[in-house]
């Protein structure tokens, strides 16, 4: 009788241990706005949605360099795994501090918002350069450097041509 009960307990334990990791609802966050949620684990597949920085996603499945996730709103798709972080956005709560202590990635959605609104050489930087007698050419070189842009589409085409990033095989 006792042995039978023990057997039941052990079976129960083993079945709980064998639960898939996906059942444990792993939450990750989108690192950068414009991240593509795609229909398959392939960069060439259809884009289901583009996600904003800090968006929480639940990991459903892992396949190579892609994670299948469910985004807020219930949309399911695949994301290139290095576009995700374990660190919750600032103020978003959810275990960030513990993950920080473990060496989690350091980024926050809060910075993204301020980052996009702060552009151009700061007036104080220009004032400092002038006070030090630094030539106008050097000041203008920084301004030109800031104005030089490559679009997300150009980067995407570049990766595709080089079989890099989400296009890596």
């Amino acid at each position: 009788m006792a042995m039978k009960r023990l057997l039941v307990i052990v079976t129960l334990m083993l079945s709980i241990l064998a639960l898939p990791a996906a059942a444990l609802a792993e939450t990750l966050y989108v690192k950068k706005s414009g991240t593509k949620l795609q229909s398959e684990a392939s960069a060439s597949s259809k884009v289901v949605e583009t996600l904003a920085s800090g968006t929480a996603v639940e990991v459903v499945k892992k396949s190579g360099r892609f994670y299948q996730v469910t985004a807020a709103g219930g949309k399911k798709g695949w994301i290139f795994k290095f576009k995700l972080t374990a660190k919750a956005p600032s103020g978003g709560g959810g275990g960030g501090s513990l993950l920080d202590a473990l060496g989690g990635q350091q980024m926050a959605a809060k910075e993204s918002a301020s980052g996009s609104s702060i552009r151009g050489l700061s007036p104080i930087s220009e004032q400092h350069a002038k006070s030090k007698g630094i030539s106008k050419e050097s000041i203008n070189a920084v301004k030109a450097m800031e104005e030089f842009k490559v679009s997300a589409q150009e980067v995407d085409a570049f990766l595709k041509a080089g079989k890099l990033g989400e296009y890596a095989q």
């Binding site: 690192k31 950068k32 706005s33 920085s53 290095f82 576009k83 972080t85 990635q105 350091q106 980024m107 959605a109 910075e111 993204s112 980052g115 996009s116 552009r119 070189a141 450097m145 800031e146 030089f148 490559v150 150009e154 980067v155 570049f158 990766l159 890099l164 990033g165």
Partner: peptide, 24 residues
């Protein structure tokens, strides 16, 4: 442009991809 493309691609998978990077 070439240096910016390589740099931007690498920055996009860094731990701080959400700021603007400039390469010269």
């Amino acid at each position: 442009r070439y240096v910016n493309l390589v740099g931007q691609a690498v920055a996009d998978v860094s731990d701080r991809p959400d700021i603007e990077y400039h390469f010269a």
